[in-house]
Simulated assay, not measured.
Amino acid sequence: MPTSSASPAPVPGRYRNDLTLFLGIAFATSWLAWGVAVAVGGESTEPPANLSYTLGAFGPLIGALVIRIRRRRRGEAVPRHVVAFRRRHLLWAPVLMILGSATVVLAALFGYAAGGPALSLDSAREMAETMGGPVAFLGGMLVSGPLSEEAGWRGTAYPRLRATMSRFQVGLLLGVVWAVWHLPLFFIDGTPQHELGLASASGVLFAVSNVPMAMLVAAAYDRAGIVAAIGMHFAVNVSLVSLGVTAPETQAMLIGIQSIAVVLVLATGRGTGRPSPRTAVPETAYVPESTART
């Protein structure tokens, strides 16, 4: 009787283990670092709180790196819903970044019409001065958020959740997880969340806005991979900070507009999160890191 190689563990179970480990590392790293920032006190942009505040942002990235190393050591396959990097994605990233910024600008315009504040770049100028100039401002916005998070939320958690859930379900779940992950920031002086206030209408709307935002960034990931997810996250964050979006009217508009944008991106994109025959990955095969990302 012919012998066969041992079959791998069931994919859903393996992915659940990966997700549990990833979320544990992401939350433990971020919340512990942010807890230290709360304990030492002071502004998030000033020492000693600044170091812990900055480190906390990298919890998802650290979790993603651990899962990636773990998968490589086990010789496991790349999850089939991972969107492998392609050079054409670099062309899509600016388009999706414009879309992300447009959702914020439109929300500000409609919010103003509904009684909110007028559009102003005063917040951007103040932030740039605080951080040492426009280049430092944009660099900080890129590192803290897009680069420190997207390899985790979209590059690691999203494909594994897609193994058993629809894009809507994954977007909803990650949006809720994202909102919970941000909670300690409400207690650190100098953060946008602290300025909003946890129990205020703006604070509640910020938490709710994590859901359409998670769906929008995930739609960008489905369309053009991790580069697009980072670009979308960056564009929205820069626009939010630059326009000083804090008023409930504007935030409510943003939730609605980003929800519409999600529908448009999904409707016009060819990708469904499933690999095409050209890029399909057998779930029992190992794929070199040079051709796919976690």
Rank of each mutant, 00 (worst) to 15 (best):
A207L: 15
S209V: 11
S209I: 13
N210D: 04
N210E: 04
N210M: 15
M213I: 14
A214L: 02
L216T: 11
V217T: 11
A218K: 02
A219P: 12
R223G: 00
R223W: 14
R223C: 04
A224Y: 12
G225I: 15
G225P: 15
I226S: 01
V227F: 11
V227I: 14
A228L: 03
A228P: 09
A229C: 05
A229M: 04
A229F: 03
A229V: 06
G231D: 02
G231M: 09
G231T: 11
H233Y: 06
H233A: 05
A235I: 09
A235G: 09
A235P: 04
V236T: 10
V236Y: 03
N237L: 02
N237P: 02
N237Q: 07
V238F: 11
V238G: 06
L240W: 11
V241F: 13
V241N: 13
S242E: 07
S242A: 13
L243T: 02
L243S: 08
V245R: 05
T246E: 15
A247N: 12
A247K: 05
A247G: 12
A247R: 02
P248Y: 07
P248T: 09
E249G: 00
T250Q: 14
Q251G: 14
Q251E: 13
A252K: 05
M253L: 03
M253F: 01
L254A: 06
G256T: 07
G256F: 05
I257W: 02
